[in-house]
Simulated scan of single mutants.
Amino acid sequence: MSTSVLPTDLSTCVAIYRTEYGIDAQVTDHGRIVVHVGDVGCIRLPAELGEVVADELARQGLSTPVIVDEKSSSWRFLTQRPTASPLFDPLFPHHAKQSGYGAEISLPTPGYPGRTWHVEPTGPHRLASEVVVDIALEKAEAMTKSAVGIS
């Protein structure tokens, strides 16, 4: 888990997101830092599934930025710019989703607790959304089978 501390100055934080992480961050009228899907992709998973997927990515030596949102009990995996919006989202049955073009993704923001980096960006690198979706589906199905005792 990331242990870095965000700068307390909003403009410095936005500058880091833009220049060091390659995220076109914007500040809303309410003072929150956001990015819109299209500049990046985003896959939202329930917390339990998100943790399992993050662990599997780490086990495979893969990395993509991950935000933990305590308010919604979800994890958001930032991915490469999406190539298309799916007509049918295979994650839907697992209470997860790929965010559509234009959706606003809240980033960790100084002065607003509740969103933290689990895996902080280390530059502009992000995994393709298909990689995260495939692992999420595999882990969600395994969790479902385990919950009902199917082997």
Rank of each mutant, 00 (worst) to 15 (best):
S2Y: 07
T3G: 13
S4H: 04
P7N: 15
S11M: 08
C13W: 10
C13S: 14
V14G: 03
T19H: 13
T19R: 13
Y21W: 14
G22W: 07
Q26C: 03
V27R: 09
G31T: 02
R32E: 11
V35Y: 04
V40A: 06
R44F: 06
R44P: 02
L45F: 08
A47L: 13
G50V: 02
V52D: 08
A54C: 01
A54G: 02
Q60W: 05
G61C: 08
L62W: 09
P65V: 02
P65C: 00
V66R: 00
V66T: 04
S72F: 10
W75C: 03
W75T: 01
T79A: 06
R81K: 07
T83C: 12
S85D: 15
F88I: 10
P90H: 08
L91T: 07
K97E: 15
G100T: 04
A103R: 10
A103M: 10
E104N: 14
I105M: 08
S106R: 08
S106N: 11
L107P: 07
P113V: 15
G114S: 13
W117H: 01
W117T: 00
V119T: 04
E120H: 02
E120K: 01
P121S: 09
P124V: 11
S129A: 10
E130Y: 01
E130S: 11
V132L: 01
D134T: 07
E138C: 03
K139M: 13
K139L: 12
K139N: 04
T144V: 14
S146V: 01
V148N: 05
